[in-house]
C-alpha cells in the first residue's frame, strides 16, 4: 500500500515546487472497488468465525439472566431459550443468523428485548466522537511532537520530549484518566468527571455544544495519550529516515527554507506510515475503548461490547462485531484514498 520514496529516486519530490503531475485517470475508483470486493469474503469469514468462537464460550444469555434474577425454573428458562432461538444445532442457528443479516436484520437483543441495531445506533455517535476526537488529537499532538523531536534530534528538546513520550507510552490510559479526574474534576473543579452530558437540563445551540465538549475533554485526552506517544515516535523515526533521502538534500541545495523542507518534503512523506497505523487504531478503538468509557461513564460501544460478553448477549455482540469489521473495511478504504492523495506515485493495484 504505502511506499516510502526510495534512495534511487533522483527527482527529489516533484510536488514540492512544480505543478503536480497529471494523475492517471481513475486512480481512486479502482482502489475503492478492489477494497470493497476483498471486503465481502473477509466480512463473511469474520461473521462465521465470530459465531463459531462464541459457541465455545460457556453459558448462554438465559443462564446469566437466571443468575441475575436470583432464581428461575426450568420451564421459564426453556421458554426463554425457545423464544431467543437458542435451540437447535449451531449450524442451523448460524444459517438463521446469516439469513437475517441478508435481510439487513441484526436481530433482537435477548437481554434488552430491543433490536440490536437500535442499541448500537444509540451508542454510535458517542463512540465516534470519542474515538475520532481521541485519535485526531493524538495525530495532531503526536505529529507535532515527532516533528519537533526529529528537528532537534539528539539535542535537549528531543531528549526531554522522548522522556515525556516514554511516560505517555508506558502509563496505562485508565490511570491517566483517573489522575486527570483527580486534578481537573476533584481538585480544580474545572471539568465534569463522569457522563457525556449534563442530565436533566435542556440545552440548545452553543450551550449544548459547550456542555458536550466539556464532558468530552477528559475522556478524549485519556484516549489520546497512548497514541500521542505512538505517533510521536513514529513521526520522529519516519522523518529522520526521510531526512536522509536524496531529494531532501536536493531541496536543501535548491536553497529552500528549513521550515518549508520539513513541512513539504519531510513531513508529508513521513505521514504515510502514520495514516496506515491510524486507520488500524481507529478500527481497534471502535469497540475497544471500554476502559476509558467505564472510568468516565461514557455511554459508548466499548462498554456495550463488554456487557454483551459478560451477559452472553451474542446477538448484540455479533452485531457489534459485524459493525466493527465493516468499520475496518471502511477505514481501510479511507486510508488508501488518503495515501493516494498524499503520494501520487502510488498506483492502485
Amino acid at each position: 500500500m504505502s511506499t516510502l520514496p526510495t534512495d534511487t529516486d533522483p527527482r527529489a519530490d516533484p510536488r514540492a515546487d512544480s505543478a503536480p503531475p497529471q494523475r492517471p485517470p481513475g486512480r481512486f475508483l479502482p482502489a475503492i472497488r478492489r477494497t470493497l470486493l476483498q471486503a465481502v469474503p473477509t466480512v463473511l469469514g469474520i461473521l462465521v468465525l465470530n459465531f463459531v468462537l462464541l459457541q465455545m464460550v460457556p453459558g448462554d444469555v438465559v443462564d446469566v439472566m437466571a443468575g441475575e434474577a436470583g432464581g428461575a425454573t426450568q420451564q421459564s428458562m426453556a421458554a426463554l431459550r425457545e423464544q431467543f432461538g437458542l435451540v437447535g444445532s449451531a449450524a442451523d442457528r448460524l444459517l438463521a443468523h446469516l439469513g437475517h443479516l441478508a435481510h439487513l436484520d441484526l436481530g433482537i437483543s435477548p437481554r434488552y428485548n430491543v433490536p440490536v441495531a437500535e442499541l448500537i445506533l444509540g451508542r454510535l455517535p458517542n463512540t465516534l466522537f470519542l474515538v475520532a476526537g481521541g485519535l485526531g488529537l493524538a495525530i495532531a499532538v503526536g505529529v507535532l511532537l515527532g516533528a519537533v523531536m526529529a528537528s532537534w534530534a539528539g539535542r535537549l528538546p528531543d531528549r526531554l520530549l522522548s522522556v515525556l513520550n516514554l511516560l505517555l507510552y508506558s502509563t496505562p490510559g485508565f490511570w491517566i484518566g483517573l489522575m486527570l479526574i483527580l486534578l481537573f474534576s476533584v481538585k480544580l473543579g474545572w471539568l465534569p468527571a463522569n457522563g457525556h452530558q449534563s442530565i436533566g437540563v435542556n440545552l440548545t445551540g452553543s450551550a449544548w455544544l459547550l456542555d458536550r465538549l466539556q464532558h468530552a475533554v477528559l475522556p478524549v485526552v485519556t484516549v489520546s495519550t497512548f497514541f500521542i506517544a505512538v505517533y510521536g515516535r513514529l513521526t520522529r523515526a519516519a522523518m529522520l529516515e526521510v531526512q536522509q533521502q536524496d531529494f531532501v538534500r536536493t531541496a536543501r541545495s535548491k536553497g529552500l527554507s528549513p521550515p518549508r523542507i520539513v513541512l513539504r518534503h519531510v513531513l508529508r512523506n513521513a505521514l504515510m506510515p502514520i495514516t496506515t497505523l491510524a486507520g488500524l487504531h481507529f478500527a481497534a478503538l471502535f469497540g475497544g475503548a471500554a476502559v476509558t468509557e467505564t472510568v468516565f461513564g461514557w455511554p459508548g460501544l466499548g462498554r456495550l461490547t463488554l456487557e454483551a460478553v459478560m451477559t452472553r448477549d451474542f446477538n448484540l455482540l455479533l452485531g457489534i462485531l459485524l459493525l466493527s469489521s465493516l468499520m475496518v473495511v471502511l477505514v481501510n478504504v479511507l486510508t488508501d484514498l488518503l495515501q493516494l492523495w498524499l503520494d501520487p506515485r502510488i498506483q492502485s493495484r
Partner: peptide, 22 residues
C-alpha cells in the same frame, strides 16, 4: 483503590443539574 478516590472533593463540580428538587 486509586489514590484519587480517597481525596477531598471540596471544589468538585456537580454534574447533574442537581437542583433542590432532584
Amino acid at each position: 483503590v486509586p489514590a484519587w478516590a480517597l481525596l477531598d472533593a471540596r471544589q468538585a463540580i456537580a454534574q447533574t443539574a442537581s437542583s433542590k428538587n432532584t
